[in-house]
Design a protein around this nucleic acid. Structure first.
Lengths: 112, 112
DNA sequence: GTTACCAGTATCATAGAGTATACCAGTCAG
DNA sequence: CTGACTGGTATACTCTATGATACTGGTAAC
């Protein structure tokens, strides 16, 4: 079973493309942590603007990463739910959290 | 042992920041696949320009992700080597390759 | 009747990431 | 002598992802 480097590179680049910008992964993470309401998600990601979150959620809905439901009670409430597909990023996100954590430790150790 | 979501988010964002642009991960991957010479790396990543690779390698050298060695034979040859630190991206890259592969299968299945 | 929350939209401005293209000095093969 | 390879630099340009700011229409609390 030999490794096809071109195929691996292509897979890698597809993933990077899908992840895209600065906010996609944090939004996925927030949804997977149980946040459902727009403002709730917004508050869970310090620094994100309404505009960026709105844009991100729209794209994610088109890409079937998120399900948007409007509940017609008054006042209207809106819920965002991660799809199963969204959750397939779990491993990547976990590894990224681990790397970031180790990186921080590494930096701190080098400061001492 | 409770999870600290703010800390996780920070770790995640540190990692994303470190990964930065479009080419960092493909370059790391290429180096980890054994490519060492400038043009060799360049050819292994279709689409990358000389300028971007040069820029990327410089930054990576500053960040201790890569070791640049000039061999003074004639003509001068230059070698780039991934550091141990560079290799810590292994898990993330592996997960990304897996995700991209699964994604492709998923797309193809949905086309049929 | 003013303040604050929800779920966003609209408009404008900008940095910097990325692309395109040309070029350089040196070496080697034919 | 020509062309091609190496390891890059230099310049100019594009463009889009992100940020800043303001606003809307409805509800509800005080």
């Amino acid at each position: 079973m030999k490794r096809d480097q071109a195929e691996e590179l292509k897979s890698l680049q597809d993933t990077l493309y899908f992840i895209g910008g600065k906010w996609r992964i944090p939004v996925i993470n927030s949804l997977c942590n149980g946040n459902r309401r727009f403002r709730e998600i917004e508050r869970s990601i310090p620094g994100i603007t309404t505009r960026m979150l709105s844009k991100e959620l729209k794209e994610m809905e088109m890409n079937k990463l998120v399900k948007r439901t409007v509940y017609d009670d008054s006042p209207v409430t809106v819920e965002y739910e991660p799809t199963e597909y969204c959750r397939t990023f779990g491993n990547i996100i976990m590894e990224m959290i681990n790397w970031g954590r180790d990186h921080r430790k590494f930096i701190q150790k080098n400061k001492e």
